[in-house]
Design a protein around this nucleic acid. Sequence first.
DNA 1: ATTTTATGTCAGCCATATTGACATATATGC
DNA 2: GCATATATGTCAATATGGCTGACATAAAAT
Lengths: 167, 167
Amino acid sequence: MADIKSSINPLFLREEDIRQGMELLYFAYRDFTSEPDAILSEYGFGRAHHRVIYFVGRNPGINVSELLAILKITKQSLSRVLGQLVREEFIDQREGTRDRRQRLLNLTEKGITLERRLSESQRSRLAEAYREAGAEAVQGYRDVLVGMISEEDRQRVFGPKKDESDT
Amino acid sequence: MADIKSSINPLFLREEDIRQGMELLYFAYRDFTSEPDAILSEYGFGRAHHRVIYFVGRNPGINVSELLAILKITKQSLSRVLGQLVREEFIDQREGTRDRRQRLLNLTEKGITLERRLSESQRSRLAEAYREAGAEAVQGYRDVLVGMISEEDRQRVFGPKKDESDT
DNA sequence: ATTTTATGTCAGCCATATTGACATATATGC
DNA sequence: GCATATATGTCAATATGGCTGACATAAAAT
């Protein structure tokens, strides 16, 4: 099944295959973010807020430096967005116990609710695509994307919580 | 190999699997665009210029309406970017023959050169990821991403040039 | 001849990013 | 304890890439 030239041996990859792969990524990413964008606009928020909410949700108690390292934006850029989320009580800041200079970030109940709402639209879209494509395809999707991610990001985000299966 | 629960049957997908899939897409997309972004800044261009150059390169002789439909931005937004590219001679505009109101867009030599340079960095990154992941993974990557793309985009971009394999 | 379409343009607004400079509180090293 | 480094915050200016609304022009279509 599928195109023989392009699927038996990846060394036979044609220009066209690569172009298609690039476009797939572009359109998938765009469509993937469009629903959350619409929800966010109800709150007067943008995609930046989503990213902050998402990664704080994923990393409860994360401090500002760590969050900046993940997002790769400047603290000035983060501060406006984070400030809004704290002021409007989607995110809670508390002093670090070991290091009281730190602000440890957590979602509030309100934040958790919004996070769920935002993720839900993406979760169901991705789950549906996974379901249609099948388990093998899912592993292929992962393998290719992992290969495209810089060593640094791969370690930070996917390294530590290495899956508990192999060897 | 790999996690049994999550790979044998996609209906067993856990929250964690989906989260990982979401993050993979986010980081892969970000890293995928970072090199071109750096190149573009040499020219004083941004990602928007890249998209215009890319899709004009992919669709020689495309008119403005069609380009807008692909990019899904307003003509006012496009006009600034496109205007720059035309003025600086990366893109050539000529009157449509059938319909002289239309501006048919093509890359100039200069535009083709830049397009190649921009795509090359992405092309090699994707080709490398494809090579590492293997042919089956490539098909899986495609299948999942296609599933995430809206019907509309799927038809416009991937429908017409339907691959010549199945049935 | 009128209307619709394809395109362009002016003006203003918003979100998100940037850099640079500086402030404050706390931790850490000597 | 003092000096320095770190974690964070904030002010100001700037750039990019979107947006809306309004209006203009040329050409096509009816």
